[in-house]
């Protein structure tokens, strides 16, 4: 059986080829909104990873019982349920951070990436591949958030994971909206450049929807 290899490929697909932020360019809001610090970015990534995986598994389990006509509302309901679970657990276990980014955690429900994976992958595949697809997408998302927030926190606050390196704030603007858009734009350009230069890709990522 080369199943293991297949699963590994699914995870790699989520991290590189179809990275939710840098390549597919879906769910861009959290990429800017919660990446002013690595800690926030990490927690957000974990929440999305959890929701994406659970949603994929649930959708895959119930895929045969849902009438195709009502599938989208049904998926929305499943997503909303899992988001509520992660929302309430974060509120219980990480109140400090939840206060700052509670709204964005709740909004995971409207992230296009989750619905699109449920619709494109989980509704057509068995439980185990769906699980690994969710895992891959979630990890790709998490890594993207960590990369963005690494630069933003280091440059904007002179710290990492809340640990202060220097009193000076090298480039305060990086933690503000402008800096967030700049960071994502420049990193995206960089990914494209690497893609064109070393992998002979076409560059120019998706472009929204």
């Amino acid at each position: 059986m080369n199943n293991t290899k297949g699963y590994w490929r699914l995870i790699k697909n989520g991290i590189f080829a179809e990275n939710p932020i840098f390549r597919v360019a879906l769910s861009l809001c959290p990429a800017v909104a919660v990446t002013s610090g690595v800690k926030n970015g990490f927690l957000m990534g974990i929440a999305v990873l959890f929701v994406q995986t659970m949603v994929n598994v649930t959708v895959s389990i119930v895929r045969k019982f849902i009438h195709p006509k009502v599938r989208i509302p049904a998926y929305m309901f499943i997503i909303a349920t899992w988001v509520t679970v992660s929302d309430l657990s974060l509120a219980a276990f990480a109140w400090d951070i939840y206060k700052q980014m509670g709204l964005y955690i709740k909004l995971i429900v409207a992230f296009a990436i989750i619905l699109s994976r449920a619709e494109l992958f989980a509704s057509k595949n068995k439980v185990t591949p769906s699980f690994f697809d969710g895992l891959g997408m979630g990890i790709g998302f998490l890594l993207a958030l960590i990369i963005i927030s690494f630069f933003r926190e280091l440059l904007g606050k002179g710290s990492l994971w809340g640990f202060q390196f220097t009193e000076a704030k090298p480039l305060l603007i990086m933690v503000l909206p402008t800096g967030g858009f700049f960071a994502v734009g420049i990193l995206m350009g960089l990914f494209n450049w690497i893609d064109i230069k070393f992998f002979g890709g076409g560059g120019a990522s998706g472009g929204g929807h």
Partner: peptide
Amino acid sequence: KSFQGLPISFI
């Protein structure tokens, strides 16, 4: 080229 499309829109 690497900035066409989405990256330049972000900036």
